[in-house]
Structures are given as C-alpha cells and as structure tokens.
Amino acid sequence: MSRAVSTPLVVGVKGSALDLVMSTLYFDDAVPELMTMAETDRIEDSGLALPIPVYARFQARGFPIVGTTLDYFAFRGLEIADGRQLAIIGETVLGAKAAEALGLGPGDFLVSSPETPFDLAGVYPLKMNVVGILAESHTSDDLAVFVDLKTAWIIEGLGHGHQDLIKNKDASLVLERNEKNVTANAKLRLYTEISEINLDAFHFHGDRSQYRLTALITVPHDSKSGTLLRGRYVSPAAATQIVQPVEVIDGLLQNIFRIKNVIDAIIMVVGIATILAILLVFALSLRLRQREIQTIFKLGCSRLTIVRLMAAEILIILVFSSVLCVGMMTVVDHFKNDLVRIAFIR
C-alpha cells in the first residue's frame, strides 16, 4: 500500500487500471497493453510532471526485467549496495532478493528469458552483464532485474548490432569437426551479447517515439500540476488513461475489506460459539465434579476456598491458552505482509 501512496500517478493505455498499477508498481506478470514513448514527450513537454518510463514486459529466470531510467532509482530511493549503477546498454542492476535467489553479483551475467517458450520467430535472448546489486528496500524492487530502457528495447528486438556473429572460440559450440566441416550445435547464437567489440555497431531502428512502454510513473511538480495533468486525460477519445495508484489499490483493498468484514463476522460467530462451548465444558466439568466438591466440603474446605480452587484451575487454562494465542498471533503478525502478498497480491 505504501508503494501505491508514494506513486502519485501512472499513465498507461486505457484498459484495466488494476492491471496497469499492478504491472507498474509490483511488476505483475500480467502485462497490460503497451503504450508508446510519445506519451513521455507529451508529459515532459507539458512541464507539469516528471515522467518515469517503466517497461516491465520481459523476464529473466523468473524475475521481471524492468526497463527504466535513472529517475526511477532516485524516485524510489534505491541505492546501489554492491557494484555500480547502470552505464552502458546490456548492463543490469539486480534487486537484493533477486540477486540472492539467482546467486549473482557484479561481474556475472544473466540471460533474459524468451517471451514464450515457443517464440521461434522472436529475437534471441540477451546476455546481460550484472554490474550492481541494490540495497534491500522491502518492496517489489527487491525482486526486479533493472535495465536501461534501451536494453529492454534490445531484448524486444528493436536494437541490434551488425556483428551479432562474434568469432567464437568456445569449443563447446562445436558439435562435430572433420577436415571439411565444422558443425555447430544449437548453443551457437543462443543469445545476443553486447560487448566492447560490437557496442559501437549497436543501433536502433524506427521512430523512437513509437517505442513501447508498460506505463509512465508520473510525478507532478506540485498538486496543481497533478490536477491539471489529470484533466488532460478525461477526454473519452484519449487512448491513454491516468490513474492514481492509491485509488486503484484502495478499490482493491475495499474489496479485500469487504471480504474481511465477512470473515470478521464469521470469526465473531465462531468466537461466540467457542465461548459457549467453553462455558458448557466448564459447567459440565463442574457438574461432573460435584461429588468431589461435596467431598472436600465435607472434609472441611470452605466454600470460598472451593470457589478459589475452581477459579485457579480455570485461570491456569486461560493463561495457557492465552500464551498459546499470543504466540500464534505473534507469528502471524510477523509474517502478515508476506501472507497478505501471497494471498492477495503475489
């Protein structure tokens, strides 16, 4: 929720606002319809807000690749804990948990995953150089693989180098070698790599303003600018929408709260039933022990002492169950964010 609060506005293609927000804020794998860079210029030219492009469409070994600009890191307050910031295309900076899970550090590389397993016509995956690891932020940024926007476009196939076929001396590429022929196995050209050798030749094709994005995190310079900017998206003819993540997530939470209210009511009924059951158990137990009570009374125990004895027994039961309860509550409380994320947000 705090992420939604700290993200003032998100611009994206008209459609599910929830998909847009989930994809932009939490890099959800349900990628919404894509928008173009032209929108970035439009917002920038308006002078009302800072647009931060987010292109969270691809994945690398199960973690979302987030193409963005340096503004994103500053905006989210993400610091480099190890290594350095992105500098050259083909480089990647990993979120703390992603780096831990993948076992990668600066100097290692990470290959992007094909968009679909049967993407035969698609571009080759990109071998990215890991140059930095971010400090843990306890947000979805920890699980992201950050690249420059341009690198994300290269993964999409919009940019390439002419020297794709680097003279490779890797012996593992060779399947069979005889005097006349060298047969390469499927490993050859399994991925594209941006190196010092082909960096100079790397270039992009087409009109940059038509390059695609998931969304724009839009940071108004002040609240008035925010209102003005939102006003520009009210036209029903507009292809794009501007949403306030707080409102969207709040709507989602409203539903969760509605469910929560139902659950609360159920818990209350169950609770009352439990209390009645407990009372019944105590009453029955007292009745069963009536003779015992009578005996100790005849042996000379005062009624007050008998009451005290019974009270002490009940108290012991209550104390034990309370301790158990508090213990379980503490465990649940400790993991509540993860539990909520697993249950509702992923």
């Binding site: 705090s2 905006f75 940071v219």
Partner: peptide, 18 residues
C-alpha cells in the same frame, strides 16, 4: 494506509525524486 496518506500526502514525496 490512512495514516500513511496523512503523513506523506499524495504529492509530498514526489519532489524528492528530483
């Protein structure tokens, strides 16, 4: 969430990105 809203405001955090 309400508390956070109050603390941060909607646009409050934003300028820090600059």
């Amino acid at each position: 969430y309400l508390g956070l809203c109050l603390i941060f405001g909607i646009f409050g955090v934003v300028t820090s990105a600059e």
